[in-house]
Amino acid sequence: MSSTEQGTSSAAPAEPTTAPESAAAPEVPESFYYVHGKDKVVHKVSAGALQHSALIHGMISNLGYTEEQAKANPFPFENIDGDILQMVVDWCNQHKGKPTPPEDTNLPKQKEKLFDLVLAVNYLEIKELLTYCCKQVAMMVKGKSPEEIREIWMIPTDAEDEAAEKEAKKRAGKEAAGETAAAAGDAK
């Protein structure tokens, strides 16, 4: 588990409550990086755990930050809710340096949370976790009737889709008209 603390990006984070580092490699001190989500809560995560995320791994591989620099420059993920980022960080820590098991039963059961998690995981490019999440999404409809599937996956009917499309077009038209009027006003 990573430690978290409320504050801004400049705040110094506390040490992790558990130390998942392998005892076999003590000579090379492990480097840590810092990430925060929408809630600005900073999470301290080891480079080993962050390897799960292709996005972050790509970002840090050539940085060569010192501990101080890393602390001072946490990676901001403003598009990810704090609790979701916490889940992701926890998962990365739990699976650091370990082969990923075929199933993961610790994923959130609430559908809206899972949706946010899927988006975050996809954004952070954590392949294994994305695979688990997608399996979980598919599991939601096991043995369900079509109407239940519609409800679980929020599939609108064709009529609802058409109405939404019409509404979106109307809104876009209005916005375009507003912009044109504003531009004309500016020109005057």
Partner: peptide, 24 residues
Amino acid sequence: SKTKNGFPLLNLPRVVLLECIENL
């Protein structure tokens, strides 16, 4: 209320949607 209780599958990015469909 639906948004609160459901999983909007069709709003997923295409690549994720593809992976979900592959598990069906």
